[in-house]
């Protein structure tokens, strides 16, 4: 894909990535050299099925966790974070 065609820029874990229109967010994450999610046991995971079935491609987009990146196209300016530990800042569970 030529550089000229990479007209959409977004950030993946803070790094600016430029992609062509029609690129899925999952592909952009791989392009950035990142895994998509951390498994419940902490392993890095990447997309498996590419069609919205397996949920391995879940990432956080503009602060919203658990988004299926393989079925969503990149749009300019979005912020993608991966391997998100969706930890709340709220402190311990017990009083």
């Amino acid at each position: 894909m030529s550089e000229v065609a990479r007209s959409i820029s977004l950030t993946v874990n803070g790094t600016i990535i430029r992609v062509a229109p029609g690129t899925t967010i999952a592909a952009a994450v791989l392009l950035a050299g990142e895994a998509t999610r951390a498994s419940v046991g902490g392993e890095p995971r990447g997309p498996l099925c590419g069609m919205g079935i397996c949920f391995e491609c879940r990432v956080t987009i503009d602060g919203v966790p658990h988004q299926r990146s393989c079925q969503m196209l990149c749009i300019p300016g979005i912020r993608v974070t991966t391997r998100e530990v969706t930890e709340d800042s709220g402190g311990p569970a017990t009083p």
Binding site: T24, A26, A27, L30, A35, T36, P44, R45, G46, P47, L48, C49, G50, M51, C54, C70
Partner: peptide
């Protein structure tokens, strides 16, 4: 990561 379905890789 980077082990995918055959169709999965194609889709990516």
């Amino acid at each position: 990561p980077n082990v995918m379905g055959a169709g999965g890789l194609d889709a990516m």
